[in-house]
Design a protein around this nucleic acid. Structure first.
Length: 215
DNA sequence: GCGACAG
DNA sequence: ATCTTGTCGC
């Protein structure tokens, strides 16, 4: 049984999919990138945004934000669960960044509007969707991912591990893939801003839970 | 109808 | 995502 909110969100996704811009709206030289990720403990969400310089990977700013969360994870409706902590965290960032990496799909989504598209439109920022698992579509021999006759994603393989890149907003697929490739370090398989954000959000959660015991 | 299914 | 031991590799 689908709730009212779920039906509304599905409609919203279809509507917003038409507003997604799959063309580059970026400065010639990208300098500052942001990666954001969320960890969970029961009904608490712990979100970290890492802002770094793409040229030297020096961290410019780290932002943490936690909140109580109420919505479960539903495939295709991930935004219902994860968009609020992400948007709240982004509000606290002081450093201006050129591009935002999101842990989840962009246009490679059943309604062409995954979390990365939603955040991009909401923030009016360039975003890239990076997911560890495919949600829809099929990978072709040239590593592009096709869904309903459209090339919407790209599969990157690093030592058996796969990731799926797709347009979030205000960028084209080719540029999105190039930026993600540039951010995957030697011996790593996940782009550095997201790897750092994932790691820090888990530390954030650990510290929060420890405080709960000691106080 | 059945299976698959971002985090 | 989270839970969770030992284990493989640098």
């Amino acid at each position: 049984m689908k709730s009212k909110l779920e039906s509304q969100t599905i409609k919203l996704q279809s509507k917003l999919s038409k507003k997604v811009i799959s063309k580059n709206c970026l400065p010639k030289k990208i300098k500052i990138v942001c990666g954001i990720d969320v960890s969970y403990k029961e009904k608490m969400a712990f979100c970290t945004a890492i802002i770094l310089d793409i040229n030297n990977l020096n961290i410019q700013e780290t932002i943490r934000f936690s909140m109580k969360i109420s919505y479960p994870y539903i495939p295709g409706l991930f935004m219902l669960r994860e968009s609020e902590p992400i948007l709240q965290t982004l509000k606290k960032i002081k450093t201006d960044f050129d591009i935002l990496l999101i842990d989840g799909h962009g246009r490679l989504h059943p309604r062409f509007c995954g979390l990365a598209c939603y955040i991009g439109i909401k923030m009016n920022k360039s975003t890239i969707g990076v997911a560890k698992k495919i949600l829809c579509g099929r990978t072709k021999s040239d590593s592009t991912v096709e869904y309903k006759g459209k090339i919407l994603g790209f599969e990157l393989k690093n030592n058996k591990k796969k990731i799926y890149v797709s347009v979030g907003h205000k960028i084209n697929l080719k540029s999105a893939v190039n930026i993600v490739k540039q951010l995957i370090l030697e011996k790593k398989w996940y782009p550095e801003p997201l790897r750092l954000a994932d790691s820090d959000s888990k530390n954030f959660r650990k510290q929060y839970l420890h405080k709960k015991i000691t106080h």
